[in-house]
Amino acid sequence: MKMLIYGLITGILFGFLLQKGRVLRYDKQMGALRLMDMTIVKFMLSAVLVGMVGVYLLKDMGLAKLSIKPTILGAVVLGSLIFGVGWGVLGYCPGTQAGALGEGRWDALWGILGMILGAAIFAEFYPALKATVYTWGNFGKITLPEVLGVSHWVVIPVFVVASLALFWWFEKKGL
Protein backbone atom coordinates (compact mmCIF):
# COMPACT_ATOMS: atom_id res chain seq x y z
CA MET A 1 0.00 0.00 0.00
CA LYS A 2 2.81 2.37 0.93
CA MET A 3 4.52 1.58 -2.38
CA LEU A 4 1.37 2.47 -4.28
CA ILE A 5 1.18 5.88 -2.61
CA TYR A 6 4.88 6.50 -3.33
CA GLY A 7 4.20 5.57 -6.97
CA LEU A 8 1.27 7.96 -7.20
CA ILE A 9 3.14 10.88 -5.60
CA THR A 10 6.24 10.32 -7.76
CA GLY A 11 4.04 10.13 -10.86
CA ILE A 12 2.25 13.37 -9.96
CA LEU A 13 5.58 15.18 -9.58
CA PHE A 14 6.85 13.74 -12.86
CA GLY A 15 3.61 14.53 -14.71
CA PHE A 16 3.67 18.08 -13.36
CA LEU A 17 7.24 18.61 -14.59
CA LEU A 18 6.54 16.97 -17.97
CA GLN A 19 3.64 19.35 -18.51
CA LYS A 20 5.64 22.40 -17.36
CA GLY A 21 8.49 21.40 -19.67
CA ARG A 22 5.97 21.22 -22.55
CA VAL A 23 7.21 17.85 -23.67
CA LEU A 24 3.93 15.91 -23.68
CA ARG A 25 2.37 17.20 -26.86
CA TYR A 26 2.29 15.48 -30.21
CA ASP A 27 3.76 18.55 -31.91
CA LYS A 28 6.74 18.50 -29.53
CA GLN A 29 7.31 14.76 -29.92
CA MET A 30 7.12 14.95 -33.70
CA GLY A 31 9.21 18.12 -33.63
CA ALA A 32 12.01 16.09 -32.04
CA LEU A 33 11.63 13.17 -34.45
CA ARG A 34 11.64 15.58 -37.40
CA LEU A 35 14.75 17.31 -35.95
CA MET A 36 12.90 20.63 -35.83
CA ASP A 37 12.45 21.19 -32.09
CA MET A 38 14.82 19.73 -29.52
CA THR A 39 12.72 20.59 -26.41
CA ILE A 40 12.25 16.90 -25.57
CA VAL A 41 15.92 16.08 -25.99
CA LYS A 42 16.82 19.01 -23.69
CA PHE A 43 14.36 17.77 -21.07
CA MET A 44 15.38 14.11 -21.27
CA LEU A 45 19.12 14.72 -21.32
CA SER A 46 18.89 17.18 -18.39
CA ALA A 47 17.00 14.54 -16.39
CA VAL A 48 19.57 11.89 -17.36
CA LEU A 49 22.53 14.08 -16.36
CA VAL A 50 21.14 14.89 -12.90
CA GLY A 51 19.87 11.34 -12.37
CA MET A 52 23.17 9.82 -13.48
CA VAL A 53 25.22 11.87 -11.00
CA GLY A 54 22.61 11.41 -8.24
CA VAL A 55 22.22 7.66 -8.60
CA TYR A 56 25.97 6.96 -8.87
CA LEU A 57 26.58 9.09 -5.75
CA LEU A 58 23.95 7.02 -3.92
CA LYS A 59 25.56 3.81 -5.19
CA ASP A 60 29.01 4.89 -4.00
CA MET A 61 27.56 5.66 -0.57
CA GLY A 62 25.87 2.25 -0.50
CA LEU A 63 22.40 3.82 -0.46
CA ALA A 64 21.10 2.45 -3.77
CA LYS A 65 21.49 -0.39 -6.22
CA LEU A 66 21.73 0.07 -9.97
CA SER A 67 18.99 -1.50 -12.08
CA ILE A 68 20.84 -2.77 -15.14
CA LYS A 69 18.98 -4.39 -17.99
CA PRO A 70 20.81 -7.02 -20.04
CA THR A 71 22.33 -5.85 -23.32
CA ILE A 72 20.86 -8.21 -25.91
CA LEU A 73 21.65 -6.71 -29.29
CA GLY A 74 18.95 -8.63 -31.19
CA ALA A 75 16.18 -7.55 -28.85
CA VAL A 76 17.39 -3.98 -28.28
CA VAL A 77 18.10 -3.17 -31.94
CA LEU A 78 14.97 -4.81 -33.33
CA GLY A 79 12.80 -3.57 -30.45
CA SER A 80 13.95 0.02 -30.78
CA LEU A 81 13.42 0.01 -34.55
CA ILE A 82 9.86 -1.24 -34.06
CA PHE A 83 9.30 1.24 -31.23
CA GLY A 84 10.47 4.08 -33.45
CA VAL A 85 7.96 3.21 -36.16
CA GLY A 86 5.12 3.13 -33.62
CA TRP A 87 6.28 6.32 -31.90
CA GLY A 88 6.43 8.14 -35.23
CA VAL A 89 2.85 7.17 -36.05
CA LEU A 90 1.39 7.69 -32.56
CA GLY A 91 3.44 10.72 -31.55
CA TYR A 92 3.40 9.87 -27.83
CA CYS A 93 5.52 7.67 -25.54
CA PRO A 94 4.08 4.93 -23.30
CA GLY A 95 4.35 6.98 -20.11
CA THR A 96 3.91 10.48 -21.44
CA GLN A 97 0.70 9.76 -23.30
CA ALA A 98 -0.97 9.51 -19.87
CA GLY A 99 0.29 13.04 -19.31
CA ALA A 100 -0.93 14.15 -22.75
CA LEU A 101 -4.38 12.88 -21.80
CA GLY A 102 -4.05 14.81 -18.52
CA GLU A 103 -3.70 18.10 -20.38
CA GLY A 104 -6.70 17.34 -22.58
CA ARG A 105 -5.02 15.89 -25.67
CA TRP A 106 -7.42 13.00 -25.68
CA ASP A 107 -6.20 11.39 -28.91
CA ALA A 108 -3.66 9.88 -26.47
CA LEU A 109 -6.51 7.63 -25.35
CA TRP A 110 -6.34 5.76 -28.69
CA GLY A 111 -2.64 5.24 -28.13
CA ILE A 112 -3.28 3.87 -24.63
CA LEU A 113 -5.87 1.41 -25.97
CA GLY A 114 -3.53 0.41 -28.80
CA MET A 115 -0.76 -0.23 -26.27
CA ILE A 116 -2.97 -2.49 -24.19
CA LEU A 117 -3.67 -4.54 -27.32
CA GLY A 118 -0.01 -4.46 -28.35
CA ALA A 119 1.08 -5.71 -24.93
CA ALA A 120 -1.36 -8.64 -25.19
CA ILE A 121 0.00 -9.46 -28.65
CA PHE A 122 3.56 -9.30 -27.32
CA ALA A 123 2.69 -11.79 -24.58
CA GLU A 124 1.54 -14.20 -27.32
CA PHE A 125 4.79 -13.80 -29.25
CA TYR A 126 7.07 -13.95 -26.21
CA PRO A 127 7.88 -17.70 -26.29
CA ALA A 128 8.89 -17.52 -29.97
CA LEU A 129 10.94 -14.35 -29.39
CA LYS A 130 12.65 -15.87 -26.38
CA ALA A 131 13.92 -18.76 -28.49
CA THR A 132 15.20 -16.46 -31.25
CA VAL A 133 15.69 -12.68 -30.92
CA TYR A 134 16.52 -12.83 -27.22
CA THR A 135 19.45 -15.19 -27.91
CA TRP A 136 21.09 -12.94 -30.53
CA GLY A 137 24.11 -11.07 -29.17
CA ASN A 138 23.50 -11.35 -25.43
CA PHE A 139 26.24 -9.50 -23.53
CA GLY A 140 24.52 -9.74 -20.14
CA LYS A 141 24.24 -6.90 -17.63
CA ILE A 142 27.08 -4.64 -18.67
CA THR A 143 27.77 -0.94 -18.16
CA LEU A 144 29.96 1.46 -20.13
CA PRO A 145 32.50 2.02 -17.28
CA GLU A 146 32.85 -1.77 -16.87
CA VAL A 147 33.40 -2.35 -20.59
CA LEU A 148 35.96 0.47 -20.76
CA GLY A 149 37.57 -0.72 -17.52
CA VAL A 150 37.50 2.75 -15.94
CA SER A 151 35.79 4.37 -12.95
CA HIS A 152 32.30 5.70 -13.59
CA TRP A 153 33.64 9.10 -12.48
CA VAL A 154 35.66 9.10 -15.70
CA VAL A 155 32.68 8.34 -17.93
CA ILE A 156 30.22 10.69 -16.20
CA PRO A 157 32.17 13.98 -16.68
CA VAL A 158 32.75 13.13 -20.36
CA PHE A 159 29.03 12.52 -20.78
CA VAL A 160 28.17 15.77 -18.96
CA VAL A 161 30.57 17.88 -21.04
CA ALA A 162 29.40 16.31 -24.31
CA SER A 163 25.75 16.99 -23.35
CA LEU A 164 26.47 20.60 -22.42
CA ALA A 165 28.20 21.06 -25.78
CA LEU A 166 25.13 19.63 -27.49
CA PHE A 167 22.86 22.03 -25.53
CA TRP A 168 25.06 24.94 -26.53
CA TRP A 169 24.79 23.87 -30.17
CA PHE A 170 20.98 23.52 -29.93
CA GLU A 171 20.70 27.06 -28.56
CA LYS A 172 23.05 28.43 -31.21
CA LYS A 173 20.95 26.82 -33.94
CA GLY A 174 17.67 27.84 -32.28
CA LEU A 175 16.42 24.24 -32.14
Partner: peptide, 16 residues
Protein backbone atom coordinates in the same frame (compact mmCIF):
# COMPACT_ATOMS: atom_id res chain seq x y z
CA UNK B 1 -2.76 6.42 -32.92
CA UNK B 2 -4.23 3.02 -32.04
CA UNK B 3 -2.05 1.12 -34.53
CA UNK B 4 0.99 3.25 -33.65
CA UNK B 5 0.46 2.51 -29.97
CA UNK B 6 0.24 -1.24 -30.57
CA UNK B 7 3.47 -1.20 -32.61
CA UNK B 8 5.30 1.09 -30.16
CA UNK B 9 4.59 -1.05 -27.08
CA UNK B 10 5.60 -4.23 -28.93
CA UNK B 11 8.98 -2.66 -29.68
CA UNK B 12 9.34 -1.20 -26.19
CA UNK B 13 8.67 -4.58 -24.57
CA UNK B 14 11.05 -6.36 -26.95
CA UNK B 15 13.85 -3.94 -26.11
CA UNK B 16 12.89 -4.15 -22.41
Amino acid sequence: AFIGGAIAIFGARLAD
